[in-house]
């Protein structure tokens, strides 16, 4: 039996208004999580290069644990597991943001460490030789340069985290994939809808790439 299939453009385009409500959730989970992840990353990344090993150790442990386990397991643990400890349910949106935060935080810690360690020793020495304290040398000389070098890997991580949020349909948070699934359940147009879902992700990640490339180009001045 010959199967013919017509791609239903009307169904594809018609699904878009039903998918769009997912975008704010996707963006909120991604960028909310990444913002917290960035703070975590700065803290743990710097602890990781501390001269004190009792500070390095817990930072290393955190990074290993959250880099070494799947983000899907992390969000399931937070959404279904933690309520058993806390004695009350956790909002799915909060669980999603928390999962992206701890997961991206682990990766960003390594990005921060790498960025800071990549700055030549002479930069710090020049700062110290001028009488700057170690903190001042870090704040005014090392960190601004490290931050610039961190832009490409941070952009990478942002794109990865945005895509990771697609997994959170499993906890019922109304992000893009979830909206698609709900819509498909009534129309059975999986091909068209998932293609649109994919294109919407691409639109988000692509816009981000453009912004990052502009940032990078600006950052090149003086390097």
């Amino acid at each position: 039996m010959e199967v013919t299939f017509e791609f239903d453009w009307a169904a594809a385009l018609g699904s878009i208004p039903h998918l769009l409500p997912g975008i704010p959730y996707t963006l909120l989970i991604s960028f909310g999580g990444l913002a917290i992840g960035f703070v975590i990353g700065i803290i743990f990344g710097l602890l990781r290069i501390s001269p004190l090993h009792w500070l390095r150790l817990p930072a290393g442990l955190y990074i290993e644990v959250f880099r070494g386990t799947p983000v899907l397991v992390q969000v399931l643990f937070i959404f279904y597991g933690l309520p058993q400890l806390l004695g009350g349910p956790i909002n799915a949106l909060v669980a999603g943001i928390a999962a992206i935060a701890v997961n991206s935080g682990a990766y960003i810690s390594e990005i921060v460490r790498g960025g800071v360690e990549s700055i030549e020793r002479g930069q710090r020495e020049a700062g110290l030789s001028l009488g700057l304290s170690r903190t001042q040398a870090f704040r005014y000389i090392i960190w601004p340069q490290a931050l610039r070098r961190m832009i490409p890997p941070l952009g990478n991580q942002a794109i990865i985290s945005i895509k990771d949020t697609s997994l959170f349909s499993v906890i019922g948070v109304g992000e893009l994939v979830r909206q698609g699934q709900v819509y498909i359940a009534t129309t059975f147009t999986a091909l068209e809808v998932y293609l649109m879902v994919a294109l919407l992700y691409l639109a988000i990640t692509w816009s981000l790439s453009l912004v990052l490339r502009t940032l990078e180009r600006k950052g090149l001045v003086g390097q």
Binding site: E120, G122, A126, S129, Q145, R148, G222
Partner: peptide, 16 residues
């Protein structure tokens, strides 16, 4: 260090 200046082989200017 505030009273002793230093010039390095690799200049070590702050590129940013």
């Amino acid at each position: 260090r505030t009273e002793v200046g230093m010039v390095f082989q690799q200049f070590n200017l702050f590129p940013h």
